[in-house]
């Protein structure tokens, strides 16, 4: 398995190839930035292909429309409107990674497998419950993206209890069937502030948004 770092290295290598090509075309006179004229032969080919393709496209669109109306999106449950979802309590579960089923559960129950942004989690035991959203912000320090969250007294007590029982394990924060975040607990959260160190900027921003308005 690879990590996002390999993906970024692949992007950097492709950038380098683009720069090599730019350098080469700058050296050759007359092939500068001016947009090239399309060759007529290609246009004929394109037109012919387009005419042949048209029938296929029409058929394809018809099939696509019928599939879409039957199919639906298996991940649709992830996008809950914030206003209605905030009525539901946020629950803390001891969790561990699990293979993704074809149809993940839409509500958190013991043993359920829930999909989150990159994979699936099996919820093992309920570790706590609270009702109000947290105050969270995403930020970068020392090259790492983090989410800082501030807790109310009631939330802090719940977190202390839940994290004491799950040190070294994944703790999933679940609101109405959506996993807000599922970090590994490195130490018990004994203060009303905690931070989640994420692997990317996008992940930090997503988690902060979800924690603020679950």
């Amino acid at each position: 398995m690879s990590t996002l770092r390999t993906l970024n290295e692949a992007f950097a290598e492709l950038e380098r190839r683009a720069d090599t090509l730019s350098a080469r075309s700058e050296q050759a006179p007359g092939t500068g930035p001016a947009p090239r004229r399309r060759r007529p032969s290609r246009r004929v080919l394109v037109t012919a292909a387009a005419v042949m393709g048209a029938a296929v496209v029409v058929a394809g669109v018809a099939i696509g429309v019928s599939l879409r109306s039957n199919g639906g999106d298996p991940q649709g449950h992830g996008a809950q409107p914030a206003a209605s979802a905030s009525k539901h309590p946020t629950t803390l579960w001891q969790a561990k990674d699990a293979p993704c089923p074809a149809h993940p559960a839409s509500h958190a129950t013991l043993g359920a497998v829930l999909r989150y942004d990159k994979g699936c989690l099996r919820l093992i035991s309920l570790a706590g419950t609270f009702h109000s959203p947290m105050k969270a912000t995403a930020g970068e320090s020392n090259g790492q993206w983090q989410v800082h969250a501030d807790l109310t007294k009631q939330q802090a007590a719940t977190f202390t209890r839940a994290t004491r029982a799950t040190v070294g394990k994944q703790l999933a924060m679940v609101n109405h069937g959506t996993v807000l975040s599922a970090p590994i607990v490195e130490e018990p959260i004994t203060t009303p502030h905690f931070q989640i160190t994420t692997t990317s900027k996008a992940q930090a921003q997503r988690v902060a948004r979800l924690l603020n308005e679950p």
């Binding site: 398995m1 690879s2 990590t3 996002l4 390999t6 993906l7 990674d97 942004d117 990159k118 994979g119 800082h148 994290t163 994944q170 703790l171 975040s181 599922a182 970090p183 590994i184 607990v185 490195e186 130490e187 018990p188 959260i189 004994t190 203060t191 502030h193 905690f194 931070q195 989640i196 160190t197 994420t198 692997t199 990317s200 992940q203 988690v207």
Partner: peptide, 12 residues
């Protein structure tokens, strides 16, 4: 074949 490692949580 990319896995995003799980984030980690610490107290401030």
């Amino acid at each position: 074949r990319i896995t995003e490692e799980a984030p980690s949580m610490t107290s401030i």
